Amino acid sequence: MDFTDDDVAELYDLTNPWDPDRWPSDRFYNGLVTAAGSTLDVGCGTGQMLHQARVRGHIGRLAGIDPDAAALGRARRRADVEWVEGRAADIAWHGEFDLATMTGHAFQCLLSDEEVRISLAGIRNALRNGGRFAFETRHPQARAWEQWAVGDSGDIAFSDGRVLRIQYRIEVRGDIVDTTEVTSLADGTVLREDTGGLRFLDVGPLNALLAGAGFEVEAQYGDWERGPVTPESREIITIARAA
């Protein structure tokens, strides 16, 4: 009983619906995209954010880049957005966008300083002078990974009638958390295991990498209501300006 890459992309949309009217994080980014004449979504996945921008009347230039071909297959259901397969390091645009975004904690998939530097260089090149880069990363002090390994997602009704569940195995090594996402049927039959890693950077190292790539931190928040970063913050939400 196969569970394909296309199935994974569909499951992502089922479990992570983009809704600015419901989710504060989506509302935060929707406001930035609405105000920008042109937006590049780095790690755009299935393209939900840019789809919704068009639905809500955005008439400017929208583009998304992602290395996942199956996710882009779903994104390309809208042809009025530019879709490119690749990573941040592959960005070939130069000075063409007012705003770049990385949503869904995609920034944490950059696991080394070098990978961050190369990715930030690509994003900086794509922005006009003074353009902004908005993204979020989970604050390491909140230790979010400790919750991921507890229990499972509960029942998820998939489009083909199967009832699915997702659970995680976690291993921590320094500031990197290795994850194994296990997708199974409700009876426990494992359909697929996907491995990955997420890096948990603190504010100081993060801002040093941004400065080295030619960005100035314009604002940094600890929550989606634009509160300050505090010892209780679960997020580091950053708006950086291309200097």
Rank of each mutant, 00 (worst) to 15 (best):
Asp6Pro: 00
Asp7Gln: 10
Glu10Met: 00
Glu10Ile: 07
Leu11Ala: 08
Leu11Arg: 02
Tyr12Phe: 13
Asp13Val: 03
Thr15Pro: 03
Pro17Ile: 03
Pro20Ile: 03
Arg22Glu: 15
Asp26Glu: 13
Tyr29Ala: 04
Leu32Ala: 04
Thr34Met: 00
Ala35Leu: 05
Gly37Cys: 01
Gly37Val: 01
Gly43Met: 04
Gly43Tyr: 09
Gly45Ser: 11
Thr46Leu: 00
Gly47Tyr: 13
Gln48Pro: 07
Arg54Asn: 13
Val55Gln: 12
Arg56Phe: 04
Arg61Val: 09
Leu62Phe: 04
Ala63Asp: 11
Ala63Arg: 11
Ile65Gly: 08
Asp66Gly: 07
Asp68Pro: 06
Ala70Phe: 02
Arg74Leu: 15
Ala75Lys: 09
Arg78Val: 11
Ala79Ser: 14
Asp80His: 05
Glu82Met: 08
Trp83Pro: 07
Gly86Gln: 11
Arg87Met: 10
Ala88Glu: 08
Ala88Trp: 06
Ala88His: 08
Trp93Pro: 02
His94Thr: 13
His94Lys: 11
Gly95Asp: 15
Gly95Phe: 03
Phe97Lys: 03
Asp98Arg: 05
Leu99Ile: 08
Thr103Pro: 08
Gly104Lys: 03
Ala106Asn: 14
Phe107Arg: 02
Leu111Tyr: 10
Ser112Arg: 10
Asp113His: 04
Glu114His: 12
Glu114Gly: 07
Glu115Gly: 06
Val116Glu: 05
Arg117His: 15
Arg117Leu: 09
Leu120Lys: 04
Ile123Phe: 02
Asn125Ile: 00
Ala126Tyr: 08
Ala126Cys: 08
Ala126Asn: 10
Asn129Pro: 15
Asn129Ala: 12
Phe133Thr: 05
Phe135Val: 09
Glu136Arg: 05
Thr137Gln: 09
Thr137Lys: 01
Thr137Met: 10
Arg138Val: 09
Arg138Asp: 12
Pro140Leu: 06
Gln141Tyr: 03
Gln141Arg: 14
Ala144Gly: 01
Glu146Ile: 04
Trp148Phe: 09
Gly151Leu: 05
Gly151Ser: 13
Asp152Trp: 12
Asp152Cys: 01
Ile156Gly: 08
Ala157Pro: 07
Ala157Arg: 14
Gly161Val: 03
Leu164Trp: 10
Arg165Asp: 08
Ile166Arg: 15
Tyr168Val: 00
Ile170Pro: 06
Glu171Ser: 08
Val177Tyr: 02
Glu181Ile: 06
Glu181Trp: 04
Thr189Val: 07
Arg192Ser: 13
Asp194Leu: 04
Gly196Thr: 13
Leu198Ile: 02
Phe200Met: 02
Leu201Glu: 13
Pro205Lys: 02
Pro205Ile: 05
Leu206Gln: 07
Leu206Glu: 12
Ala208Tyr: 04
Ala213Arg: 05
Ala213Glu: 10
Gly214Met: 04
Glu218Leu: 01
Gln220Asp: 08
Tyr221Trp: 15
Gly222Tyr: 14
Gly222Arg: 07
Trp224Asp: 11
Trp224Arg: 01
Gly227Asp: 14
Pro228His: 07
Pro228Val: 10
Thr230Arg: 09
Ser233Arg: 04
Ser233Ala: 11
Arg234Tyr: 12
Ile236Trp: 02
Ala240Cys: 06
Arg241Gly: 06
Ala242Arg: 12
